[in-house]
Amino acid sequence: MSDPILTVSGVHSHYGRAHILSDVALEVRGGEVVVLLGRNGAGKSTTFKTIVALVRRTAGEITFLGNRIDNRESYVIARMGLGYVPEERRIFTELTVMENLEVGRQPAREGLEPWTPERLFEIFPNLAEMRDRPGGRMSGGEQQMLTIARTLMGNPSLVLLDEPSEGLAPVIIEQMAQTIGLLKQEGLSVLLCEQNLHFARLVSDRAYIIEKGQIRYEGSMAELEENDEVRAAYLTV
């Protein structure tokens, strides 16, 4: 396995007076798909938001591609090649598909073939048919694809996906799984958080389990499959 491109260690964060994360540590290596599993409110989204500096950490270190990013601002982190797809999709509903992609565009990165709308349309053929449609007039599944495509326009080397399967029809979730597979083939690393274990199993190499703001388990997806005890304790499927 290659070197870690994202390392989170000893991270704490608060929301108002609430202590959300305590001593969170995890890493993602190049070309890897890693899933962060946990119940609602366990701290998955906050972990992501802390990594991309939408929530301030109160302690700990975050390193991306060898650089400390825990004191950087969101836009700097994004420009360094760390893409973030939030849970609520948050596409720009007033903007067309092409304009949404334009907002995400960042300069090409050395050693990576830059993403263009045309190249993205090969992966997301649906979007090609609705270039000038405002985001607000797309279905939930199409919006989810657009939000990923938009993030890819920034030419990231790591993408954080916050519950990509939430609220989607099973057939669309299957497409999503295929898409993540394609991204992996392109050499991207992916860190996603999920509650849908079926989906996580399809796409991930490794898994972390988070509970009450702390990482409680770490292992390969295969190991987790074997470990009924852990699954019963934290995921209660």
């Binding site: 029809a169 099973p170 299957e174």
Partner: peptide, 8 residues
């Protein structure tokens, strides 16, 4: 809708 059943 249901697909192959792989994700549920």
């Amino acid at each position: 809708y249901l697909g192959s059943g792989a994700v549920h």
